[in-house]
Simulated assay, not measured.
Amino acid sequence: MKSSGPLYTLFAGLALGLVMLSLNATTGEGASPSGGAPAATAIPSPAPTRTTAGPSTGPSPSKPAAAKTSYAGRTDDDTAAVSVSVRDDKAVAYFCDGRSKESWLKGDVEDDGSMKLSGKHGAELTGTLADERIRGTVEIEDRPYAFTARKAVKPSGLYRATTEVRGAEIDGGWIVLPDGRQVGIVTRDDEPSKAPPIDPETGAVTVDGEHVTARPVVP
């Protein structure tokens, strides 16, 4: 009788193979077709977030500065000159006789063009802006001066210089009339006198030997 050892070995190998096939069938669902590691499951990426552009919050364009307009003319009695510088609803005026009497005044301009400006020592200017001219009255030292000041084209207009020259406080005012004439006063430590002429193109003027620059007056 032949030995049965090889048959047992063969049956044992077949049984082991069947067990392995059963295990593969149970656990191999995620295996790749090539028998490698299970394929990674793709995770869908989130949909892009849509943003709605709102109104710009950045700085808005700056408002352009309002243009300044000057007016210059003589009093009705031709003894003095008056100039008014206007920007928006503000005005600065200068009354000057070119010798010793002067006054700086300031105030508001109403929507209808009327204005009432005030200065030191009770000085007052009342007038109305219309048709590119100002018609009104300046009252200085209890005396009224009627005037008409027409729109001035540069270099005509109102100029001022404040500085110190040779230890004295200098305050100079100039009115350049449309015909080129100049009327002005320079006050040295509260002592007024006739002003030297300025160069209306540059504002340059020499006061007591010193070079000074007079600048257009802006409200």
Rank of each mutant, 00 (worst) to 15 (best):
residue 6 P to K: 08
residue 8 Y to C: 00
residue 10 L to H: 02
residue 17 G to H: 06
residue 19 V to R: 00
residue 23 L to M: 05
residue 30 G to A: 12
residue 32 S to I: 00
residue 33 P to A: 02
residue 36 G to H: 06
residue 39 A to I: 14
residue 45 S to Y: 07
residue 47 A to G: 06
residue 57 T to Y: 09
residue 62 S to T: 06
residue 63 K to C: 09
residue 64 P to N: 07
residue 65 A to I: 09
residue 66 A to I: 05
residue 68 K to C: 10
residue 69 T to N: 11
residue 69 T to A: 12
residue 72 A to C: 09
residue 76 D to W: 04
residue 77 D to Y: 04
residue 78 D to C: 01
residue 79 T to H: 03
residue 81 A to K: 03
residue 82 V to C: 09
residue 83 S to F: 05
residue 84 V to R: 11
residue 85 S to C: 06
residue 93 A to G: 08
residue 94 Y to W: 08
residue 94 Y to N: 02
residue 98 G to V: 03
residue 100 S to Y: 14
residue 103 S to A: 11
residue 103 S to T: 03
residue 107 G to Q: 03
residue 107 G to E: 03
residue 109 V to E: 07
residue 114 S to P: 11
residue 115 M to Y: 09
residue 117 L to I: 04
residue 118 S to Y: 05
residue 119 G to I: 15
residue 123 A to I: 00
residue 123 A to T: 09
residue 125 L to P: 00
residue 127 G to V: 08
residue 128 T to D: 15
residue 134 I to E: 13
residue 136 G to C: 09
residue 138 V to A: 15
residue 139 E to I: 10
residue 139 E to Y: 14
residue 140 I to C: 02
residue 143 R to I: 10
residue 144 P to F: 05
residue 153 V to H: 15
residue 157 G to D: 06
residue 159 Y to G: 10
residue 160 R to Y: 12
residue 160 R to A: 15
residue 160 R to S: 14
residue 160 R to M: 13
residue 161 A to C: 11
residue 163 T to S: 11
residue 165 V to Y: 00
residue 166 R to P: 00
residue 166 R to E: 09
residue 168 A to R: 14
residue 174 W to E: 10
residue 179 D to M: 04
residue 181 R to C: 08
residue 182 Q to T: 11
residue 182 Q to F: 08
residue 184 G to T: 03
residue 187 T to G: 12
residue 189 D to T: 05
residue 192 P to V: 00
residue 196 P to T: 07
residue 197 P to I: 04
residue 197 P to Q: 11
residue 198 I to Q: 12
residue 199 D to E: 13
residue 201 E to F: 14
residue 203 G to K: 06
residue 204 A to Y: 00
residue 208 D to F: 02
residue 208 D to K: 04
residue 209 G to H: 13
residue 210 E to D: 15
residue 212 V to Q: 07
residue 213 T to V: 09
residue 219 P to D: 14
